[in-house]
């Protein structure tokens, strides 16, 4: 009795090419494919459809191509310019009072004898020895810019009242 050799196996296997689906299967396959695509699309939530559209759009724009060297350098320069502008402007304006008159004074350290509840602090004449001009005041970061004074963020009225 002869045994099967590799060639026989190959020939037998090649006969399996003649196993074919029912007639018309390949003709209908494309229609079935379209139908399934439509069904799948209708079953998807709206946000996913929008996301896919956006991805397609980005792909067609060829975003990786846009991130070339010149574009990257331009982006870095723009970012640097924006950041430097922010640094130049300093901290938030709402807490900074710019003194228009450089000779204005700030009452900081008054001797206890100078205090009186009879008149407001701002209208009192404190005398030359008690004055501190702006050039000695708390320096801000630039000499060329007008002097700035940081106001206390807590309103005076909220401070604890003096008790005598």
């Amino acid at each position: 009795m002869n045994e099967f050799n590799e060639d026989d196996i190959g020939k037998l296997l090649r006969l399996k090419r003649h196993e074919q689906p029912p007639p018309g299967y390949f003709d209908n396959f494309l229609h079935e494919f379209h139908r399934r695509q439509r069904d799948e699309l209708l079953r998807q939530p709206l946000w996913r459809i929008c996301l896919q559209r956006a991805q397609d759009f980005m792909f067609r724009l060829n975003v990786p191509g846009l991130t070339s060297y010149p574009a990257a350098v331009t982006a870095v320069l723009v970012c640097a310019a924006v950041i430097s502008l922010k640094v130049y402007q300093g901290p938030g304006i709402e807490k900074v009072a710019v003194v228009q008159n450089p000779t204005s004074v700030v009452a900081t350290t008054l001797p206890e004898t100078a205090w009186s509840l009879s008149s407001p602090v701002s209208t009192r004449d404190l005398g030359p020895t008690l004055l501190r001009t702006a050039k000695y005041s708390s320096h801000t970061h630039r000499a060329a810019t007008p002097p700035r004074y940081v106001l206390d963020s807590t309103p005076v009225s909220y401070e604890a009242a003096f008790r005598f």
Binding site: K11, R14, L15, H18, E19, Q20, P21, P22
Partner: peptide, 12 residues
């Protein structure tokens, strides 16, 4: 799937 009739004419 069934083998189609063309197998009868297959050389192999």
């Amino acid at each position: 799937d069934d083998m189609d009739a063309s197998v009868q004419n297959d050389k192999e």
